[in-house]
Nucleic acid binder design. Structure first.
Length: 576
RNA sequence: GCGCCUGUAGCUCAGCUGGAUAGAGCAACGGUUUUCUAAACCGUGGGUCAGGAGUUCGAAUCUCUUCAGGCGCGCCA
């Protein structure tokens, strides 16, 4: 129905208006056909006359009469009204109203307005937490978000690839290995454990699991920790250097084991959270600068030709030429690459893989980095428009009104795994997605866990479960679920149905704007409409023709709720 | 100092690619169950959409500005 009315509107602009072609073009771009928010305004409404009258400085009513005439000639349209400042409200016949719902239900993949966004090959890179410890609740938000937009974009017909970028090449991994080493050979008391080393209990687990063919004498141990620098950062770097030199074979064994262990546990947590990546990209696969043929060398050489210079012994990228605040070092004065140099090569690799769009989901503390990476992309000859960066703010957890400590000096923190064990993957996702990603989120686990009316998650699930229960009872009475609406003169369901029809627009908008929270709020609204309806109408004792339509309506509402939940990665509950 | 984000009901927030009387939940108060799941529903009160100016037929939404709060500005990752 949407497409039919829309083409009537476009025909009207083409044929009935004596506008210049530029004006027509503007008009065709700007006018909108939308579902009404209240049935008093009909089913569909358009602002076309408002826009048109503004273009030629006339009264909307002068334009509306011809449009109304054209629309009213269509058999599906019962009446058309001019309302408010110049909106044209369209009332469908009962049959047309029902038909569009049956169509939507029977063809869940045909999408309103989908022709407007061409199918794209999209890559989403998210989580990408350093593999130095378990995922915490902050990572959980990024995971829920990245996966949800992936699901939504897939629903809109795009080809989506999910990727995790593993920073397995830097100093952080050395620190991980060092921490394991120190625990394995019981170097320090907890109090004296170096401030920059990882202190979490998972390090002890790794150390315990590690089998290593090495015995240290007391003297060797004392040499290793003799006369260390006071500064935390210098201390850990010195320790790494000494352990590496002491036994380089066992060092790399330790490093690989620690890395493998942590990545395995991250994968396990993500799987439990129903987040599956198509690709795990290892920073180390970009190779080393020393290797002239490695990917990272090739990428750097490419930008060095035209957009870099040497200063103070380092190589600088002229990122200011591409809008950055200052130029950036890509090769340090000691010959090592920077984080940016690896990221530069990584983005080159991604863009060369032929994605139309790459989406980077980053923690919001990286926002200063956006312009830099955009400059890098342009320096390599790509368009920065191919990349979108979506920032995700940290989530604060609360319990009974007080903040849950995210991290403590002892290295213990509330992990994603604990959250999932505590309130479940589905409720966690629901609350993670309940606010725009780039804004602070306060998340009360007490409420998420509770069976109370405060718990929005259950409010939505309850609507779905109630419909399931009604259908079950209905079927038990020997009837079968209706396959279409009849023409009973009964309109109590209309508000609910009008809202159900809106799902496709919400999903479209959530995908185009990368905002899954729109779906959360939509779910709340439709659940509310359903609960209201449920309390007003005695469904199982309704008169037969009416009952047919009610059941049909509820099938549609149920399917809408279920598919919206699934887009958020949440399993709809059949009973509660 | 520069950049980004935020400011909407007592609280937590929707609405922001301009549209019809600014919404929801919680909190407060008062109701609804011999009937399909009361994890529900109904009602009442509560707003200078931070302040100011501008653009427009029309502004919470766009522009400028002031104020308040948060974050980011490494040869860290």
């Amino acid at each position: 129905m949407y497409n039919q009315i829309l083409s009537s509107l476009n025909e009207f602009v083409d044929n009935d208006l004596s506008f210049g072609s530029d004006q027509k073009k503007t008009l065709l771009n700007k006018h909108k056909l939308t579902l009404t928010d209240s049935l008093q305004k009909g089913h569909w409404t358009t602002n076309l006359c408002l826009i048109a009258s503004n273009l030629i400085k006339t009264n909307p009513r002068d334009i509306a009469s011809a449009l109304i005439l054209r629309l009213e000639s269509k058999p599906e349209i019962e009446k058309v009204e001019l309302a408010g400042p110049g909106f044209v409200n369209i009332f469908l016949t009962r049959e047309a109203f029902f038909n569009q719902l049956d169509d939507a239900y029977n063809n869940p993949n045909s999408f309103v307005g989908s022709s407007r966004s061409p199918k794209e090959k999209i890559q989403i890179e998210f989580v990408s937490a350093n593999p130095t410890g378990p995922l915490h609740v902050g990572h959980g938000r990024g995971a829920a978000y990245g996966d949800a937009i992936g699901r939504i974009l897939q629903r809109l017909g795009h080809e989506v690839s999910r990727e995790y970028y593993v920073n397995d090449a830097g100093r952080q991994i050395d620190i991980l290995a060092c921490s394991i080493f120190l625990r394995k050979f019981e170097f320090f008391d907890d109090d004296a454990f170096p401030g920059s080393a990882y202190k979490g209990s998972y390090i002890l687990d790794i150390a315990e699991t590690l089998e290593i063919d090495l015995v240290l004498t007391q003297e060797e141990k004392e040499v290793l920790i003799d006369n260390l620098p006071d500064n935390d950062e210098e201390k850990i770097d010195e320790l790494i250097k000494r352990i590496k030199t002491f036994d380089s074979n066992n060092w790399s064994l330790l490093r690989d084991f620690g890395l493998g262990y942590v990545i395995k546990s991250i994968k396990k947590d993500l799987t439990e959270f129903k987040v599956i990546f198509d690709n795990w990209f290892y920073e180390s696969s970009l190779g080393e600068l020393a290797d002239k043929k490695s990917e990272i060398s090739l990428a750097l050489n490419q930008v060095k030709k035209e957009h870099a210079y040497e200063k103070d012994g380092a190589v600088w990228l002229e990122s200011t030429k591409f809008g950055d605040d200052k130029d950036r070092v890509i090769i340090r004065d000691d010959g090592r690459g920077t984080y940016l140099s690896a990221d530069l090569a990584y983005h080159r690799n991604k863009l060369d893989r032929g994605f139309d769009t790459i989406i980077n989901v980053w923690g919001s503390d990286h926002h200063g980095y956006i312009r830099r990476i955009e400059a890098t992309i342009e320096a390599m000859g790509y368009s920065k428009k191919q990349m979108k960066v979506q920032l995700v703010q940290f989530a604060n957890l609360f319990e009974n009104g007080s903040k849950v400590k995210m991290s403590t000096r002892s290295g213990n923190f509330y992990t994603l795994k604990q959250l999932i064990d505590d309130i479940g993957s589905d409720a966690s996702r629901f609350y993670y997605l309940s606010k725009q990603a780039d804004q602070h989120l306060d998340f009360d686990i007490g409420i998420a866990r509770s069976n109370s009316k405060d718990n929005l998650y259950y409010y939505v699930q309850y609507a779905h479960a109630r419909i399931c229960s009604l259908e079950k009872k209905y079927l038990e009475s020997g009837k079968i679920l209706p396959s279409k609406f009849n023409n009973a003169n009964f309109d109590d369901c209309d508000k609910l149905l009008q809202m159900a029809l809106g799902a496709q627009f919400i999903i479209k908008s959530a995908g185009d704007n990368l905002q899954p929270h729109l779906i959360v709020y939509y779910l709340r609204d439709i659940a509310q409409s359903f609960h209201q309806f449920y309390n007003n109408v005695n469904i199982l004792n309704a008169e037969e023709l009416e009952q047919n339509n009610i059941l049909r309506a509820l099938m549609i509402v149920k399917s809408v709720i279920a598919s919206c939940l699934e887009l958020l990665g949440i399993e709809p509950l059949e009973k509660m």
